[in-house]
Amino acid sequence: MSNLPDDYLTYSNRALGMDHDRYTWSQLHERPNVTWPNGARVALWVVTQLQWFPMDMKPGVPVPGGSVRPYPDYWNYTLRDYGNRIGVYRIFKVLDKLGINASVAINSALAERHPFLIEQINQRGWEVIANGLDMGHPLHSGMDEAEEAALIKGVLDSLRNLSGQPVRGWLSPIRSESFNTPDLAAANGIDYLCDWMNDDMPYAFETKSGTIHNMPHTTELDDQQILINLRHTEQEYVDQLKDQFDCLYAESEKYGGRVMAINLNPWVTGQAYRIKALEKALSYITGHDGVWSATGADILDAFKAQA
């Protein structure tokens, strides 16, 4: 093993604020209060992820939920595919029943395979968020910039064409970014990112193509994280969603409107034995006065109007 170079003990970004220029340092509780439409206290942002895990995945970074068995891995492929055939419609039924206005983050390759899914989203007036190409193509710094640029442009062209929507939001597969991802997304007309999980509110995010925003969208409440990775029970999942809501709802009295994002994977929460847990949690939340169920773009626009 060789010794470290001398500059290992040099700290070139050691200064007030962040060690990069993407956003400014700001504490949540010191910001001006935000008011949501009709005086709502919490903007509820439900995001269903529709993803395709191809059998020949060779991602440059590990992909949770991807194949862990030798090829041909019908096990993992078909279990994920269950979500897009069965689970998603259980989730949509619950959202319909509760009158929830939602966003759907979708891989463009899946939308191309099954345009029926886009029709289902559009019929409900829901928002399409771009979730990359497929789960075999996470973005990362090992990628050539031109390759990443072409991938992002291709994804957005495809989803805009299929959905007829402007597609303003970007969620990277497994939230994995290269250093260039925000610039490339913004250059292709993206208004907001969902990858960074460092806040409870939208905040301004700097790119080479100007200021966009990052929306609060976290793995803390992600069903895959709670139920699969952490192996909590369905009841614990319900409790966590309710606890998160209770805290944000209470805080909103003093600090103004808050955002609660819930990320759903149909192959997880769309299982027959889990769907009632989701319904229970969402019923609790939407049963409160002052809950505004909205898409990411709606929330961002209301936020920007006050910034």
């Binding site: 041909p72 492929y77 055939r85 419609y89």
Partner: peptide, 16 residues
């Protein structure tokens, strides 16, 4: 390598 199993068609539960 196959990208997909090529064993079944898409069939959404809500429309079959």
């Amino acid at each position: 390598m196959l990208r997909e199993p090529e064993l079944y068609d898409y069939s959404p539960m809500c429309d079959r």
